[in-house]
Amino acid sequence: MLAFKNIKKSFGPKQVLNDVSFDVKAGECFFIIGASGVGKSVLIKHLVGLLACDSGEIWLDGEEISRFDEQQMGPVRKKCAMVFQHATLFDSMTCAENVALPLRKHKDMNAKDALAEAKKRLSVVHMQAFADRYPPELGDGMRKRVAIARALTVDPTYVLFDEPTTSLDPVSARRVDTLIRELCDKLGVTSIVVSHDLSSIFSIADRIVMLYKGKVLKIGTPAEFKATDNGIIQQFINGRAEGPMDL
């Protein structure tokens, strides 16, 4: 169970999040949508302690974590894994070494066992053939799948995805969607996905929150979003250039 309560965050004079509150239920695939620059990524970075909010509370499984320091954040980060927008693999390590690193650090495995386990985990995302390649040699979609395998090594209960399908070709994007859906259905992981990819939103989301001008515009199921008569939401989910939304 995860809850954001009255989160406010500004960078200098620019107020990015202005009183954002919502809950995420265990085991659901929850989407955070909105135009670029509306603070979606900023919001989920609060959850893993990469940013600290100006005011508000973040409740994770009965703990208020918004004021945790780097040390207290450790267990939270093992519970909440994050997949970055650009995958952000370690360039100087092979894919297998990338996945093996958290295994080595958190599961008390020696280097050899960790690599063997890493290759097993890469096969789950169909990347075992590229285990010994370096990330810069791979395409975006492949890197993203390795990043997902790396995030899952700590056996998290929550996984945060920052724009998982942006900059991917349509086929790779749908594969990543399938992977995210499988996480919820097979492993019971709660996925929180930041996205503005319409096909992902309507194919795999359980519930959606839409942010607009630093506030929550609407929370609901995909069906409720399609049925709404709110002009801004209609403009967004139909991808029209003209409409009531200002950027």
Binding site: A96, K112, L115, A116, K119, Q128, A129, A131, D132, R133
Partner: peptide, 17 residues
């Protein structure tokens, strides 16, 4: 690294450099 490659045969070529 080569030892683990042998136990998990996969078609990937070794690291280029």
């Amino acid at each position: 690294m080569s030892a683990t490659t042998e136990t998990h045969p996969d078609p990937s070529p070794p690291d280029a450099t």
